[in-house]
Amino acid sequence: MLNNDVRYKIAERIAQELEDGQVVNLGVGIPTLVNAFIENKEVYLQAENGLLGIGPPPTIDQLDIDLINASKEPVTITKGASFFSSADSFAMIRGGHVDVAVLGILQVDTKGQIANWAVPNQPILGVGGAMDLVVGAKKVIGAATLFTKDGTSKIVKKLTYPISGIRSIDLLVTDYAVFSFESGEIHVNEILVDMPIEQLSEKLGITLKWREPVD
């Protein structure tokens, strides 16, 4: 339950980053939860299997096995929605027409490069749209709890999980803090818990700096 609360907290914080009029792709896991916090915004949700305009979850009567998101969960559509092929969908993604991709991550390095598709020493047999979204979206927001269940930080100096692409993400929202990545450096935008930046640095084993305010 506690873990679930943390996941919703992260999702709610990510929703604040989204702006009216944006086309947004929500990945599997915490990103899916973001949908619950954007009701007051006009955001167009894209599903990489071929839909722009995902609506709220369906009632039993609305269920259609042929209306699903990229996690193969049943969805509904909004007014103004459109369907297209997977080739068109990934042209939309790779071509830079999706404003924001929110992706679950397993690890991120201090430059902002992520690992989110495979685990070491496990067979590598699934990737889906993860790599296309990392390179293609105009802005990539990572979503994760900052520590794994055994207390290991997901922010690392060097990735030990297989990398998802050479492009750095822009923002990382965790349960402890919001981080940004610019010019190959990690910065803290905001700390969401009662903890000074020095203590957070110590916990992560990384010297963290505040992001310079932008005028």
Binding site: S85, F90, A91, I124, L125, V127, G129, A130, D132
Partner: peptide, 19 residues
């Protein structure tokens, strides 16, 4: 089956497969 060598798999990113 793949780990036993009984099935060959070529893994491609979804957008690369489509294109």
């Amino acid at each position: 089956a793949w780990s036993k060598g009984e099935l060959l798999i070529d893994l491609l990113p979804q957008g690369t497969l489509a294109e």
